[in-house]
Write a protein that binds this DNA or RNA. Structure first.
Lengths: 205, 205
DNA sequence: TCAGTAGGTTACTCGAAGTAAGTTACCTCC
DNA sequence: GGAGGTAACTTACTTCGAGTAACCTACTGA
């Protein structure tokens, strides 16, 4: 009954990188399920099939584990976005494709997204920095797009516009969760309709 | 040395309402200073000059105390906004005055704003509801404004626009903290320039 | 002046983050 | 094919803070 015959690896040893990735997967899941506060390191460890000190070995602290999750998501998002806009030619197209990539990304990573946007933001100071890093990625990109559209625009104003785009997008992404009928394409359209028209209007008018 | 002569009230008794308000003041401060997680009930109690069980007597839990803070800020913000827009006549004016009131409020209540915006996203589920309540106040108002502007617009689209306005505003408010030269008036202008133009354009064009 | 109660305290439990010190599977080089 | 080095892992704690039970005290009015 309790035999472990014929290779039934209840807890197998793993190389570092693989274990680390697995930990991030599980942690992302548990954080999203329970929220950062309610999630316990013991539960995460148990689900991974490993003891708690291993988590500390790899990530240093609960906070560190959270940062790890966020950082991975950030990297992936950036990759996706850059790939998405690589085929674009006009500023409008860059913005549209970037937005679409973003909405698609969060559609696939609902849990991670809820974590990033709702919970992590507050609970852990260093998580805020990491999240701000994500936004910085986006605002820099957008400010550059706006700048390339019309080099006469005030730097501060371009920054403000970029912030507006990012804020709109984030907020709309959250709203989309309650509105399943609004997919990435429609969400992109909404943002473009309001914001791009507004920006273009400002620049040319 | 250690005497308490001539009415030196190290810890005075207080009527409930006054004590409660004092607790909220201190809690708001400590939450803002340390963040929700790092803030301890013991510290809050000590700063109030009262023992921990009193906090639990009045607010039930740490979460309850946070909700109390958020709720108070929410009420105040709503009052301010409603008063501000009471003199407006056109939808555009309503939006502009509402935005201005918002930016002014958060300029004056940085701590409360940090609570709303940062701590609010805290893992605490009911805090999230409170915060969502605030946004709902705003989005409902804005959706109504947009609806009154042109009743032909799709309900979903009006909602999306409202989310965009709120998202832009929130994000820009955060950005303003790093840009002291951008005051409430200029921030309002930025949002109106981009968003209102975008919305109006969509409605009429 | 003393009973009733609003306002307050001491001293605990319990659960989860974080850690010190020891253990086992796996590889490698003879 | 077994010694031995080390990467991967565990057990068994400490510590700290949220939450609570049970008790105390200053003020009120009849």
């Amino acid at each position: 009954m309790t035999n472990t015959a014929t290779a039934e690896p209840r807890r197998k040893r793993m190389p570092k990188a693989q274990r680390k990735a697995q930990m991030l997967d599980i942690a992302e899941q548990v954080f999203a399920e329970r929220g950062y506060l309610a999630a316990s390191m013991d539960e995460i460890a148990e689900r991974v099939g490993v003891s708690k000190p291993m988590l500390y070995e790899y990530f240093g602290s609960k906070e560190g584990l959270l940062i790890g999750c966020i950082h991975r998501a950030r990297t992936e998002l950036l990759d996706r976005t850059q790939q998405a806009i690589s085929g674009a030619s006009t500023p409008e197209e860059i913005l549209r494709l970037g937005l679409l990539a973003f909405f698609e990304f969060i559609g696939e990573h609902k849990q991670a997204w809820a974590l990033l946007r709702q919970e992590a933001a507050v609970t852990v100071p260093s998580a805020v920095e990491e999240i701000e890093g994500i936004r910085r990625q986006q605002t820099d990109l957008i400010a550059a797009v706006i700048g390339s559209f019309d080099t006469d625009i005030d730097v501060i104003e371009a920054e403000a516009f970029a912030e507006i785009v990012v804020g709109s997008t984030e907020r709309l992404a959250l709203w989309c969760e309650r509105r399943p009928e609004v997919g990435p394409a429609l969400a992109t359209t909404y943002v473009m309709e309001v914001v791009w028209r507004g920006v273009a209007n400002r620049l040319t008018g």
